[in-house]
Every structure is written in C-alpha cells, then in structure tokens.
Design a protein around this nucleic acid. Structure first.
Length: 953
RNA sequence: GCCCGGAUGGCGGAAUUGGUAGACGCGCUGGUCUCAAACACCAGUAUGGUUAAACAUGUGCCGGUUCGACCCCGGCUCCGGGUACCA
C-alpha cells in the first residue's frame, strides 16, 4: 500500500470536522494559549502559496502547544469590508455582499484543504451584523469618552459634563482640541448646541474640519497609512489635500502609551522601530516670538533696547513656534510659516499682500504628489513683517513656505540656516543671512547639523555644550513666560470617515446640525440597500441614496461609513466569545483567554492595523472590556514568498522562440510564460501552443531536443504568470507535503522565492516515513521487539531538537531534523513500535494527516489485510506526547579535535566529565602529540570542555 | 537623506551564538534494479591540486581583537525593507 495522501487527508479532515476536535472551550484545569493569524481580506484571486505561510506556522505551533498540555484558542475569520468588492459592485452592479460571500467560500475551501486546526465555530466575518454591531458599539464608546491626562486614561463624557457644571473647564486636563477657558456659570449659560460643540473638542471620536487625503478617483478620504507616495494604496490613484468635515479618532491622545507599551511586548526590534518612527516623539520647546509693529515699508528696527514685548498688547498675538533645537535661537535669521497658518493674513503688509496671496493659492493647489516629488524645489514668499527674537531683540523677517507643514508642531518655525539643511537651502536661495552658533563644521557649502558641540555667538549660552544649552534656553524661556518645554508626536489622529458604501454605517444621527449617538438598543444599525454604489449627483456618499436613511424620529443618519481598519481593530476579542449577543465579549471569556499570546502576520500592517489595534485595545482596556493594555504579547512577521518567473525568448519580429542557452546568438525579446506549462525550466511546447492563440504556430530553436526557459525572482503576481496556486500542489503532493515544504523553504521571517522543484524532497521524505511503518508488501507492520539503544538515541535526540526548534519558531531546521531522523532510522530498517509510535506523534504538528493515520494504525493494532483505511479510533492527544529522556542521549565520551596553533591535527576520544588538567595530560601524553610538536615545547594548552583542545607551540 | 535588516557552494539554506564551515533538501554526475522508463536504493558533489591522497584556498571587500572569527570591533561595497520637507 502506497502513501495515498488524498485518501488520508480527506479522511482526517472529515474526522476533525465531525468530531469538532479543535473546538476550544474554557477549561480552568489547563493553561490557555491564544494563537492568532491576521485574518485575510478575501480577494477574488483566491490564495497563492504566500498566503498560507503564516497560517501553517501558527497551526504547527497551535498543535504543538495542545500536545504540550495547553488549551489552545486558534480561530480564523474574514476581514470582509474593503474596496475591491465595492469597485466591482460599481462596475457590475453586483452587491458587494454577494462578491464577498463567494470569495469567502473559496477561501474557506482552500484553507480547509490544508488541514488547519481552527475552531471553525468561532469564525467571524466583519461585514455581518452580529459582528459589526460591536464595531458600532465601540464607536459609540469612543464618542462618549474623553482622555483625562491626570488619570492617563479614557473617562466618560458624562463625568466631563459634571465637572463643567461644577467648575467649568479651567482645571480639566485633557487631550483635546484647543478650547477657550470657561466657568461653570458660562457653561450653564450656553445653548445645547454650544455645549455640544465644546464637548466635540474632547470626544475620542470627534467630528472636525481637517485637511484630509482626498482621492477623487475613489471618491473617498484616506488615512495617512493608506497613502503611499502621494498615491492611494489601493489602485494607485492621485491623492489631494482638501479640508473636509470628517470623523476622526483621537489616536494622538494615546501616543505616549503606544510608545511605552512597546517596551512590554515581545515583538521584533525592527517592527518596534517602525512604530516608534511612526509615532515620532520629539522633545523640544515652544517659544513665542512677538510680532514687530507694522512700521511701514523700508523702515528699520531700532537697535536700542526694545520696547516691543507686550507693548502693543492685544493687537497681534505672538507667533508660536516649535523647535527641537532651542539652543540655536541666536542663529535664527528668519521665521517660516506654513501657507495655511492663521497669522498669514493678519501680519502680511499691504506691499506684500499680492505676492503672499498668490503664493498661498499656488501652494494650496499643489497636489500631494507634486509636493513629494519636488521636495528639492525651493519656494517661499516674504510677508513684509518681522518677529522679535525674545533673547536679543533682533528683528527677524517672517516668510511663508510650504516646506513647513501645517499638521506638525505649531505650523511655524524659527529657521536656523547654519544648522538645518532645509533652512540652509532656503537661506541660500533667497539670500538670507546665516549665523553659525555651534562650533566646528564648515558652513560655506552646507548646514552643520551636529547635535553635539560648543555654542558660539550666543550670548549667555556661549561655551556650553549643545545639551546644556538646550536645557538653559528652555529654562530661561519658562522664566520669561514666553514658552515651555514641549513634546511633539508625529502620530496624527486617524480620519475615520469613508465616503463609500461597503463599510460599517456610523451609529450616529444629526439633530440641529450636531451629531448624537444612537441608543445602544438600536444597534446594529444595518447597512441599507442602495440602487447604485456611487456618490450622489450632489457629491454625497452612497448611503445618501438609501430610502428613509433616518432614525425613527426622522433625524438624518450619518452617510459616511467606517474605514477598513474599524472591523479589524478588535476582532481578536470577539473570537473569545463570538456568539455573545449582549456584549463585544463576555466577562468569563475575556477573564479566561485574556489576550493574544502569539500573533503571526505580515509587516505591511506595521503602521496601520497594528497601531490602530493597539490604540483600540488600550481604549477598551480603559473602559474595562479588554483585560490587558496590550493586545498582542508576541508577534512574528512572516516573510513574503516571492514568485519565480519563467521566460521564453522570441526572436524579434518573428514567431520563433530560442532556447535559453542559445539566446545570445539572436536579437530577442523575453516574454513571461505561465509557470504551469513549464516543468524544471523545460517548456511543454504543446501546452505553450495552446496557451495563447498567438503562439499556436510558434516555431522553436531547441537545445538537446528541449526548450529551456529562463527564470527570475519577482513579486508573485498574475501579470507575471508566476502565481503558484496551493490547490494544484495539494492535488499533486498533498497538504502535509505542502505544509512541510513551506516551512522547509527557509526561516519564517525571511522573504524567499518560491521554488517548486524542492518540494519533491519533502514528498520523498513523507513517502519514506510511510514505508517505515510498512512491510515490503505494503502491509502495515511494527515490531514489538525491544528498541535498540541506537534507535532510542535517535528518537530522543529528535524529540529534543523538535521541541527546541518549535519553541523558537525555527520550523525549517525542525523539518531538517525529521529528515535526518528518518534517514537514520531507515538506514537500519528500524520498525520498532517503541520508536515509531512516538515519532508519529512528534510529526503530527507538522504533517498532521499522515501522523494521525500512522498513529491510529499503531494504536488500532493490526490493519486488517486488504483494508486501506481502518476506522479512526481518535486523534493524538497530549497524554501520548513523548517525553524527552536525557539518559538516551547522554554521551559519556567526547571526541576532541586536537589542534596545534589552531590547526586540527587529530581526534581524541576522552570521558566527558574529565577535568581540564587531566585532558591536558592525556593530550600531551598522546603519541601523535610528539609528532606534531616536532621537538618544540608547548607554550600553552587551551582546553575548552566539550569543544576543542588547542596546543600553542 | 535617516532608521532597520541582510550578503555562506550551481540553488534554497544549516552552523544550538567564539570551537572540525557548508547540516538538510534541490540540482548535477556515476552506479544498482528494469526490455525500457517511472519509483526506489547506493556512491560522489565548495574551489585549486592529485589516479587517489597529502596539501593549499575559502562565509561580499579592507583592516583589527583572539590560540581560534560566518559570529566580536573599526572602515567600505552591494542588495532588501521602512520612512521622508516632522523643525
């Protein structure tokens, strides 16, 4: 009987499904372990071999943990809201729900064939009402909470209202939009609408007019991480900056906690670095510069002691800037405002008004892409107005330029051309003065950006080093009351509205122009039907097309929908208790499962999903839903699997194709050829002719009667015809082979090219495993003889190696260890039950179907003659997992390489516990030692126990 | 530009972190079985050298530390990923 993987795999997949083998239930007797995969967006193209890589790894680990006695939660679901299904709906009119359902069915089928140990009853789909109910619910919580700096946590809005009623907002410390101070009396005197407007400044989910990334082609707003190089991540369409009224999440309130939290979790350093950079914390100082009074064109600033500060009082507010280098303030020779800055209009002199207006208009119309591709283009305009350096009362011209961004700091800077390259280029271009204030460096050609050195030309900080100077200036600034030390983050609040159809509707209605949350009992707010998936003629989002899109009382509902990351931000919590109809997750479930212990997924989510999810979780932690502050304790990024493309070479202007090694003799054009009609780089000419009509009459120049194709490693993509479909491979080799081969390909975290040729090796290995358990005529047979010492040693070495490798996610070396073990065992035809029974169990996380089959035959006793598949008696469980016993692998001798001056000359077997001094004696006493010493006396003998002995001559 | 990674045979990759570099697999070469093929099995396979060995050279490049370096330190080159007027 041969290794019939088709029968075996179908049988066990059916068995697992029917017996709900992997159903996870709360069990306080066992420690829990939660293994999570990043759930897929089910695209129309189906899976390629790259997708299951992480799933296979997590499945191996889940199965392994179960065998080690853990109660493992290992669920799978689908991130179902997304643009492709909606774009398809716009083109074809097919409801995105139908497309999505079809795609999910295909994904389920493909994943099902790989033998994953998912708890299928916990499957969640983000577009289903019983799931998005809780996405909407969480949004309401965000809307009804604010961030209290004193508590360093989210607090209910109702509490804030109580405080306002009692004492106004003077003492409230919140992460919020800037709000004027008011007393309790003033608060009470405000109208309902005015009060709501103020509360909006505090809410964690809030509505505000912000400059957003607008993609006209997609007809929607995008988050920062959805814009790549000024183009939309999906589709690659141009993105503009446009002010719009949008929902936003106050992610920035959690910036410090998101940063601190990284210290407590087991993620790779590179991923943590990515998040740190994205959060972009910088320590600096805010300083107010007074605006010089308008004294008319051509006038000069008086050099004597200035009387400007505060003299002109309420006329013009001071100009607030942010800098990380307050030490360089004496080198500041001009100021720069962003074109959107609110002071632009106030301070511009009549003479400069035209020029400034023109510039601001030009800057506004500049697309994001232009800005990014023309970074080196230096533009700007003088306002005609001056600021006063508070430290030396120098008059400094104020310019406007779009290299200063509105969204960061205060949207205004003090430019120090000597020590900042952008300011330097600007100063050179517009011929502005440059004053060096840090010693060293040559500023004749470029800025000197050193963060270390001695201050010069800087009044009271002269002679200090940069670090002390920064402290001194911040201190002085605070004493003078003109500024303060300040921490800035690059992380912005996330825009949360999408002008699309296929997303979660907001549980929000409008009354008197102000938004209010729906009552929780009215959830879920179902996504309505629309006749078309496009925006309305008036430019409103598609939901505005829905009939009766109002509350029962007739108040209009919000027409935008939530973005893709809404549904994926807390799905891991829902898996703990997926059918709960009274809450996102029940108390008992979250108390038991706590948090995700292992999360496996791609790096592409480093600054998107993984930031939002952490934010979302921290909020849910604050309001007592999540049990831990961080959602994912350990995270592994699986590498990408690249494609291996094949090429044919067409002689230019003909329909003749020349084989790879002869191509240099002709003028040729390489063409991608579908990898399914190429085997081991040899083209199947008949299939090629049928592949495309153009090639039906193709002629070939062959080498050795074959057409050899060229190859290259590229991204796996339809257009390169290099997509490897896992179904084909499962069909040909079986799921166990595919699983082991994907692991064998290389380290999990590394990107590597797919190479189908190597899969044969793993397939041979499994066939060999199968044969070990069968006699020559193919009948199942194990000997009940006592195992040999040697066999036990192989087994226990393998147990130790597999456990070790599995624990550190080194699955590629684990597969190698299996192969070595099988080579050793089959070398002396070891078919002892005592060895092979445990071996099957050991193999089961990696190749679960064949392992179950073999193990069941072991336990089921003799397989009746002629019967292919005896009825399964059960699955491998933790009780049967073999224990590693050191006594079998203990060595009592070690064979030392004996080196002379670092060169190994002979080997010497010595007892393992021999003390160093004895080893030294034995080596010197050995006959060969004299030969290699050649009459010299040894200078030194270095003994490294269980490693090497080196004699220095 | 800045921040991370990485570079080892014809190929994918090992080397339990300073101790016999190239495990394991692919590919290739030769052999056994077969009428033949497929499957399977056996042997070989870093480079130079030799009938074979001895020996010499070898982990991107240059240098250093060490009895000993793929591994640690300094200086480069190339490749991959992230990020970018963030003051």
């Amino acid at each position: 009987m041969d290794y019939n993987f088709k029968e075996i795999e179908a049988k066990w997949q059916k068995y697992w499904k029917e017996h709900k083998t992997f159903k996870a239930e709360i069990d306080h007797e066992k420690p829990k372990y939660y293994v999570l995969d990043m759930f897929p967006y089910p695209s129309g193209a189906g899976l390629h071999v790259g997708h299951p890589l992480g799933y296979i790894a997590s499945d191996i680990y889940s199965r392994y943990k179960r065998l080690k006695g853990f109660n493992v939660l290992h669920p799978m679901g689908y991130d179902a809201y997304g643009l492709p299904a909606e774009q398809y709906a716009i083109q074809t009119g097919q409801h995105p729900a139908i497309t999505t359902e079809k795609n999910i069915a295909r994904y389920r089928e493909q994943l099902g064939k790989l033998g994953f140990s998912f708890d299928l009853e916990r499957e969640i789909i983000t577009s289903e009402p019983n799931y998005y109910h809780w996405t909407q619910w969480t949004f309401i919580q965000l809307f009804e909470h604010w961030y209290c700096i004193r508590a360093n946590a989210a607090r209910p809005i109702s509490l804030l209202i109580d405080i306002f009623n009692e004492q106004g907002n003077r003492k409230v410390k919140a992460e919020c939009t800037e709000t004027p101070i008011f007393t309790a009396e003033e608060w009470k005197a405000k109208s309902e609408k005015e009060q709501q407007e103020i509360l909006m400044n505090y809410r964690l989910a809030y509505l505000s007019v912000t400059t957003v990334n607008w993609c006209p082609k997609l007809g929607t707003v995008l988050a920062n991480d959805e814009v790549v190089n000024g183009l939309s991540e999906r589709g690659g369409y141009p993105v503009e900056r446009k002010p719009m009224l949008q929902w936003a999440l106050r992610v920035s309130a959690y910036a410090e906690r998101l940063l601190q939290g990284l210290e407590t979790i087991d993620w790779t350093d590179s991923l943590k670095d990515m998040q740190r950079n994205w959060i972009g914390k910088s320590l600096g100082c805010e300083i107010n510069f007074d605006i010089a009074p308008a004294v008319g064109a051509g006038s000069t600033c008086p050099n004597e002691q200035s009387t400007y500060p505060n003299e002109q009082g309420g006329q013009t507010p001071p100009l607030q800037i942010f800098t990380t280098r307050p030490d360089t303030i004496f080198g500041s020779t001009f100021m720069v405002l962003c074109p959107e800055h609110e002071l632009v209009e106030t301070i511009t002199t009549p003479e400069q008004k035209q020029a400034v207006d023109d510039y601001v208009k030009w800057a506004k119309n500049r697309s994001e892409r232009e800005r990014q591709t023309e970074v080196n283009k230096i533009t700007g305009v003088f306002t005609g107005c001056y600021a006063i350096n508070p430290f030396n009362n120098q008059k400094i011209p104020i310019w406007i330029a779009d290299y200063v961004l509105a969204g960061y700091g205060t949207g205004a800077i003090m430019a120090v051309p000597a020590h900042d390259s952008r300011d330097y280029k600007f100063a050179k271009h517009f011929n502005l003065p440059i004053i060096q204030v840090v010693e060293g460096g040559d500023i004749s050609e470029e800025a000197f950006e050193a963060k270390d050195g001695t201050m010069i030309n800087s009044d009271f900080i002269n002679g200090m080093n940069v670090k002390n100077a920064i402290d001194a200036v911040v201190k002085k600034t605070e004493e003078l009351g003109i500024g303060k030390g300040k921490i800035n983050y690059r992380l912005r609040d996330a825009t949360f509205s999408r002008q699309r159809y296929w997303g979660e509707p907001f549980p929000i209605y409008y009354k008197d122009g102000m938004p209010y949350a729906l009552d929780e009992k009215d959830l879920p707010l179902l996504l309505p039907e629309v006749n078309k998936y496009l925006p309305t003629e008036t430019g409103e989002p598609p939901l505005a097309r829905a009939k009766n899109w109002t509350t029962k009382d007739g108040y209009p509902l919000e027409t935008s929908t939530m973005p893709g990351f809404a549904g994926s931000s807390a799905y891991y919590l829902r898996y703990m208790d997926p059918h709960n109809s009274t809450g996102l997750v029940g108390q008992e479930a979250v108390d038991y499962w706590q948090t995700v212990d292992l999360y496996i997924g791609g790096t592409e989510h480093a600054t998107g999903h993984l930031i939002y999810s952490r934010f979302w979780n921290k909020f849910l932690f604050d309001i007592g839903i999540a049990k831990t502050d961080e959602p994912f304790q350990k995270l592994i990024n699986q590498g990408m699997i690249q494609g291996r493309s094949n090429f044919v070479y067409r002689i230019v202007g003909t329909n003749k194709f020349v084989s790879y090694n002869l191509r240099t003799n002709y003028e040729i054009q390489p063409l991608h050829v579908d990898i399914s009609i190429v085997e081991n780089d040899i083209l199947d000419i008949e299939k090629f002719k049928q592949w495309m009509p153009d090639f039906a009459n193709a002629e070939f120049i062959l080498e050795d009667g074959k057409y050899v194709c060229g190859h290259e490693v590229e991204k796996m993509s339809k257009s390169f015809h290099n997509v490897q479909n896992p179904d084909d491979l499962v069909e040909k080799y079986g799921a166990d082979t595919l699983r082991m081969y994907e692991m064998f390909l290389g380290p999990l975290e590394q990107s590597k090219p797919w190479d189908t040729q190597g899969i044969e090796g793993v397939f041979r290995f499994l066939k060999k495993v199968w044969r070990m358990y069968h006699q020559n005529d193919g009948e199942f047979f194990l000997s009940d003889e006592e195992p040999t010492e040697r066999g036990l040693k192989v087994l226990h070495k393998t147990i130790r190696k597999i456990e070790d490798d599995t624990e550190r996610f080194s699955f590629n070396t684990a597969v190698s260890a299996f192969m070595i073990a099988v080579n050793d065992l089959s070398d002396w035809k070891c078919n002892k039950r005592a060895i092979l029974e445990p071996f099957a169990i050991l193999l089961s996380p990696y190749a679960p179907h064949i392992a179950e089959e073999l193990w069941n035959k072991c336990r089921g006793g003799v397989c009746p003659p002629g019967q292919v598949n005896p009825a399964p008696t059960g699955t491998i469980s933790m009780e049967q997992y073999p224990k590693f016993e050191e006594k079998y692998v203990l060595e009592n001798t070690f064979t030392y390489p004996i080196s002379f001056n670092g060169k190994t000359r002979f080997m010497l077997e010595l007892p393992i516990d021999m003390p160093n001094s004895e080893i030294e004696k034995s080596v010197l006493a050995h006959a060969d030692t004299q030969k290699w010493l050649a009459g010299n006396a040894p200078k030194k003998v270095i003994v490294v126990p269980k490693k090497i002995v080196n004699v220095v001559v």
